[in-house]
């Protein structure tokens, strides 16, 4: 699915990612954990193509393509989906119109015609249920006046609509109460299959009780310093990050 090799990235001249390598195979769920400022969100943004991040070295191969050479929109069209940590409010653009534009641009990229209105509406109805999103919200402006939980559910709803091959969830659990977390996790779990992969960026182990990862990686100071299975997350929860910091210094 995606192979990241020796990725270096900076923002405003400051290096954040310092040689990050990661391989995610089809259908796998990888959790990226780490203390604040370790570069977790930077990784998510770099993969999605945010322009203020400058990649200075390394490569990212996504389904055989050099991801770093693609524009943000082309990455999305190729099947990369970033669920934002802070979804942007866009007054005046309705959720529905936004999603239809999005789906049709992705379809056009693949040489397909616009989606049939009937098919689109049926899809909206079906996918809303997945994250228990109120039908009224889809008629409103994108994220405008949504609660924190509604915004995150809207991200997962969009992901369900766009059916990406790789979902990157950037701290989707932050700011969610336990009920909202369960709904969001449930939505993600339903989207899991043998083909679709996920990268979960999170600070806390809590999310991983609901979305059980195949692998857990610890990011520290711009590099992955430890990898393991879900048990590693529990160990982190128990011991915190400090023991890894000293380990990585020794290494």
């Amino acid at each position: 699915m995606i192979t990241i090799k020796n990725l270096h990235a900076s923002v405003d001249g400051k290096e954040i990612l310092k040689g990050l390598s990661l391989e995610v195979k089809d259908g796998e769920v990888h959790a990226i954990m780490g203390p604040n400022g370790s570069g977790k969100s930077t990784l998510a943004s770099v993969l999605a193509g945010k322009s203020e991040y400058e990649v200075t070295a390394g490569e990212v191969i996504f389904n055989g393509k050099n991801l770093l050479e693609l524009s943000a929109e082309d990455r999305a069209r190729e099947g990369v989906f970033l669920a934002f940590q802070y979804p942007v409010e866009i007054p005046g653009v309705s959720n529905i119109n936004f999603l239809k534009t999005s789906i049709n641009e992705i379809r056009a990229y693949k040489g397909l015609g616009p989606i049939e209105p009937k098919e689109f509406l049926a899809m909206v109805k079906e996918k809303q249920k997945l994250v228990e999103l109120d039908g009224k919200l889809t008629g409103r402006s994108v994220n405008e006046g949504f609660s924190g939980g509604e915004k995150k559910r809207n991200e997962i709803f969009q992901m369900a609509m766009l059916e990406p091959s790789l979902g990157i969830l950037d701290e989707t659990d932050s700011g969610l109460d336990i009920d909202a977390l369960r709904i969001v996790a449930n939505g993600v779990n339903k989207l899991r299959d043998a083909k679709r992969s996920f990268i979960l960026v999170t600070h806390y182990q809590r999310l991983l009780d609901y979305i059980v990862p195949d692998f857990v990686h610890v990011l520290y100071n711009g590099r992955i310093v430890k990898s393991g299975t879900k048990e590693l997350a529990l160990e982190l929860e128990e011991k915190g990050y400090d023991w890894l910091k000293s380990e990585s210094v020794e290494a």
């Binding site: 193509g49 945010k50 943000a72 999305a76 942007v88 999005s102 641009e105």
Partner: peptide, 18 residues
């Protein structure tokens, strides 16, 4: 907002127009 729209596959020009 531009990046948000682009991250959903909407091209730069369409995103700006939207």
């Amino acid at each position: 907002a531009m990046f948000y729209l682009q991250a959903r596959g909407i091209g730069k020009e369409s995103a700006r127009a939207l």
